[in-house]
């Protein structure tokens, strides 16, 4: 029983943390065997003897000749016991601060005077025992929570973009486009870096393509900087960035 639990824990961790997809591999998230164990869909099997029935992705990957090309690109079997936690306001702000290399105190303020994470802390899962006598996080996430996250993400990303475009030589996230060339290849490079900075993994080909292409949907005025801010925004406020 103990061994099973331990294997399950290891498997879940692998599943959660080994999701990064290599760009060349199209999002396999590491070896197929690791993924199989990571989802724990078979109750804690190890990767030593995977069977065709262990993951749907693997089963689908075998062609008629029986060759195994690995899982379909970008396929991840659902976790049998999905347990993830919301980061809450302060943890999220700290992660953004570290990822974007913006001092925490200047990451995001409301009306220039109130720290964003403090203003929205209750909506974003925190408590305030001494001030509001809220001893437990809200039972239900409020409808305003996603908007609050968007404000924080938009502000932090806007701040990073502003700093990088003001001083391209010292850019942290957007150096390729901040210097004046927002070509597709330069945008690709920025997207790849943003995924590493914000999600600590490599972007998939598909993700790079999609975020890069958003450029064409933006107004031409200040297009490069706006794209930089919003490319950061879509990654920084993704579900993956908000849960752990």
């Amino acid at each position: 029983m103990f061994l099973d639990s331990r294997l399950t824990l290891v498997a879940l961790c692998c599943g959660a943390l080994a999701l990064p997809a290599c760009r060349g591999g199209g999002g396999g998230g590491g070896s197929s065997d690791t993924e199989t164990a990571g989802t724990d869909s078979t109750g804690g099997t190890t990767d030593t003897n995977p069977t065709a029935s262990e993951t749907e992705g693997e089963a689908e990957s075998q062609d008629e000749t029986g060759n195994d090309d690995g899982p379909d690109p970008g396929t991840q079997a659902p976790s049998a016991r999905p347990r993830v936690k919301f980061k809450t306001a302060q943890r999220y702000a700290t992660d953004l601060s570290n990822a974007l290399e913006i001092p925490r105190e200047s990451l995001c303020t409301e009306l220039d005077d109130f720290d964003c994470a403090a203003v929205h802390r209750i909506a974003l899962g925190e408590v305030d025992a001494f001030g509001l006598r809220l001893f437990e996080p809200l039972e239900n996430m409020p409808l305003t929570a996603p908007i609050a996250v968007d404000r924080i993400g938009l502000t932090a990303c806007g701040e990073r973009a502003q700093r990088d475009f003001d001083a391209p030589g010292q850019a942290v996230s957007f150096s390729e486009v901040a210097s004046g060339d927002a070509s597709a290849s330069n945008r690709d490079a920025v997207v790849e870096r943003l995924y590493r900075q914000l999600l600590l993994r490599e972007a998939t080909d598909r993700e790079v393509e999609q975020v890069t292409a958003m450029y064409d949907d933006l107004p031409s005025s200040n297009q490069a900087q706006t794209w930089a801010q919003m490319a950061c925004f879509v990654i920084a406020t993704s579900t993956e960035a908000l849960f752990y």
Partner: peptide, 29 residues
């Protein structure tokens, strides 16, 4: 535009979502 890309494409297709979309917190979010 950005939200549509995030909500309808990136989040839906991400491996994180494929693995954990069934979690209560993620579903609620």
């Amino acid at each position: 535009t950005a939200r549509a890309l995030r909500n309808d494409v990136l989040d839906v297709e991400s491996q994180f979502n494929q693995a954990f979309a069934g979690a209560d917190g993620v579903r609620n979010w």
